[in-house]
């Protein structure tokens, strides 16, 4: 018993050392602000104009929605590589449904989101029932979905989609910011709430951190993973509809370009706010941090290639950072 008492007093002195981590939590935000000031000084006439800011925010709404959907399976440790092709699939169905099949635009959107969700159902079925690594399953199914997309669209861009979708997505910017940005932020709030305050969110987290612990605590691990894949496909379906709204058309090849930026945003987002965890507001910050960098550099006259350099580099740096943070916290755990 004396032993135990000694332990207690010793631990009383041992205050949790979180000071260092607290600053790190906001490091990316700090770099973002520096970046804005930097471009603001270099490009006083173009960068900090309301037109540019509005454009920067609006152009990222689709990517942000897609990344928020991807966040859900990632939280459960499930890589979903099919999100971008699912989004494109949905976009093409909206356009074809409306233009060729003569569906009302809202019915077309419903059909598209439903079809997209089916992709998640199939992904989850294969992952859970056969116990196969989601990485490879979603890579394969994602490619199948690209094939389907080309098939139904004859690999051609569909134009002439009902204006009311564009009106809904783009019309009447509020405070000079396009409306779709607000939709994306609303979704972010929903995802944040699910992660933070619902039992489902907590289960996702445990399945991602340690599936064995989750299972022994009664969490249906397979079902949770499956649900997360359906959720990401559903959100990708919505992203597809918004995508059509912003362009008024559907290009069957446009979606693939979103995959890497979405992953870059999700990983970079896990280095902000709550470090080492995929989180919603961190993803928002990451998306706009990346957009700021790319827009600024392009305004400075750099070419299109900047985009790839920036997204690819950010993904790798984010993964390295989160690895460093994790191994450091493991070291602390080992010492404690």
């Amino acid at each position: 018993m004396t032993n135990n008492k000694a332990n207690t007093t010793e631990a009383g002195l041992q205050k949790p050392k979180r000071k260092g981590l607290d600053l790190e939590r906001f490091a990316l935000i700090g770099v973002w602000i520096v970046l804005i000031i930097f471009f603001g000084i270099l490009l006083p006439d173009t960068f900090l104009t309301s037109a540019n800011i509005s454009n920067m925010l609006g152009s990222q709404a689709v990517l942000l929605i897609l990344a928020l959907g991807l966040l859900i399976p990632m939280r459960a440790g499930v890589y979903d590589l099919s999100v971008a092709s699912t989004m494109n699939f949905s976009a093409v169905i909206v356009a074809i449904g409306n233009v060729q099949w003569g569906l009302s635009i809202w019915v077309a959107v419903l059909v598209a989101v439903f079809a997209a969700s089916l992709v998640g159902v199939v992904n989850g079925f294969i992952v859970v029932k056969f116990g196969i690594d989601p990485f490879i399953v979603t890579l394969g199914i994602g490619t199948v979905v690209v094939g389907l997309t080309y098939w139904i669209s004859n690999a051609r861009t569909t134009v002439g989609v009902d204006r009311s979708l564009s009106d809904f997505v783009l019309a009447k910017p509020f405070l000079a910011i396009p409306v779709d940005v607000y939709y994306a932020l609303a979704l972010c709030f929903v995802v944040w709430y699910i992660f933070q305050y619902t039992a489902f969110g907590q289960r996702l987290l445990f399945v991602g951190q340690n599936p064995e612990v989750a299972r022994l605590n009664g969490v249906p691990v397979g079902r949770t993973r499956w649900t997360s894949l359906i959720a990401s496909a559903f959100v990708a379906g919505i992203a597809g509809a918004v995508f059509v709204g912003t362009t008024g058309s559907a290009d069957p090849t446009a979606g693939q370009a979103f995959l890497l930026p979405a992953f870059a945003a999700v990983f970079l987002g896990s280095t902000v706010l709550s470090i080492g965890r995929f989180n919603a507001w961190g993803t928002v910050i990451a998306v706009y941090f990346l957009a700021t960098g790319i827009t600024g550099l392009q305004l400075l006259g750099l070419q299109q290639f900047v985009q790839q350099l920036f997204y690819g580099g950010a993904l790798v740096i984010a993964v390295v950072l989160s690895k460093i943070v994790r191994s450091r916290s493991e070291r602390q755990a080992g010492a404690g």
């Binding site: 039992a199 907590q202 987290l205 445990f206 951190q209 989750a214 605590n217 969490v219 916290s329």
Partner: peptide, 17 residues
């Protein structure tokens, strides 16, 4: 328990699952 999650989160899990 999941080592990288907090004590509270680990303790709350059974009631949430």
């Amino acid at each position: 328990g999941a080592l990288s999650l907090t004590v509270l989160e680990n303790m709350a899990l059974p009631s949430l699952s």
